[in-house]
């Protein structure tokens, strides 16, 4: 290729603002979601009873995160039409016109392939297969199917976000066990109240986009009841984990405190009406949504603390 041929291929009318930056491609990977994936997968790997070389831990977590990012890019490619309608997502790179849909698709598929292959090399085939299934579940089962077809979309789709600690555990041990399933269940049960609290104060975003969120199909009152029911089930599960082999005194104290606060928040949401919420700008719903983020971070952080106590011989288990 020469200078002449290079320059002939450049369309000179490309507007400066249409040129995607490196940051736009990073945004396609949903970095905030990735941070949660990194943390929960890391905990899943570190609480496993098998020591793993630190570099292998780093590599496995990195490619689990990249796999999660890849599924985020595929989600943005498929959902560009509804992202454009919703205020919360309108500025994403594809609906904002900064990245072409085909580029998001290519990035998503390419990173999916690389992340699965590299996880197989760094950890094992079981972990890689689980990562591949997670990407498939999020991109196809949730994004392409459930999200636009059922108000249970985030209940079932929540499984995609619940897999990372299980992948971390399998990366360390090579097998799925009860502890991995319990960590999966913790995020799975946490997702509905977390997202429904968000959906309550997102008002008409989902209805404008035609996404059948529970708030749209069954109304706010039914959603408030659902939040409380799921929070009760979540609290029982979260506290119960304290008495398994991955639990410990720090986790138990954390779970008791966090679940008491979360239950109180869910009950406060249940007691309110849409009129109450509109009067104070959905203050309670926003508070519970923020609390739900801290809730998950503290639970997994406590699991890590108890695992550290065990590794130093400070805590020897319940028996």
């Amino acid at each position: 290729m020469t200078d002449a041929s290079l320059h002939q291929s450049i369309p000179r009318e490309i507007p400066r603002e249409a040129e995607p930056s490196f940051r736009d491609y990073v945004d396609l990977l949903k970095p905030r979601v990735m941070s949660l994936v990194v943390f929960t997968a890391l905990v899943g790997m570190l609480v496993a009873p098998v020591p793993v070389h630190p570099f292998l831990v780093f590599t496995a977590i990195l490619f689990i995160a990249i796999g999660a990012g890849a599924s985020g890019a595929l989600n943005m490619w498929w959902d560009a039409d509804i992202d454009e309608v919703m205020r919360r997502t309108a500025k994403r790179p594809v609906p904002a016109g900064r990245v072409a849909p085909g580029e998001a698709l290519a990035l998503g598929l390419g990173l999916s392939l690389i992340s699965v292959m590299m996880l197989a090399l760094a950890a094992n085939l079981a972990a890689a297969a689980l990562l591949a299934f997670t990407i498939f579940f999020y991109a196809v089962i949730y994004t392409m199917w459930l999200k636009r077809s059922t108000p249970q979309n985030i209940v079932i789709g929540g499984a995609a976000g619940a897999f990372p600690p299980m992948i971390g555990w399998v990366a360390a041990t090579g097998t799925v066990s009860l502890e991995a399933v319990l960590m999966f269940a913790l995020i799975f049960m946490w997702t509905p109240p977390h997202f429904w609290a968000l959906a309550l104060f997102m008002k008409d975003d989902y209805s404008k986009a035609g996404v059948p969120m529970l708030t749209v199909t069954h109304g706010h009152d039914a959603t408030r009841t659902h939040i409380l029911v799921y929070t009760v089930a979540l609290a029982a599960l979260a506290v119960g984990i304290a008495f398994t082999s991955i639990g410990g005194p720090v986790y138990l104290a954390t779970a008791l405190a966090c679940n008491a606060l979360f239950l109180r928040g869910a009950w406060a949401i249940r007691k309110r009406t849409t009129t109450d919420a509109e009067e104070d700008g959905y203050a309670t719903e926003k508070r519970v949504f923020r609390l739900s983020l801290t809730y998950l971070f503290l639970h997994f952080g406590a699991l890590l603390v108890d695992a550290t106590l065990k590794s130093f011989g400070i805590w020897g288990g319940w028996t």
Partner: peptide, 9 residues
């Protein structure tokens, strides 16, 4: 021939 970056792109 070496490609020289002459375009603002």
């Amino acid at each position: 021939m070496t490609i020289r970056a002459t375009h603002e792109l």
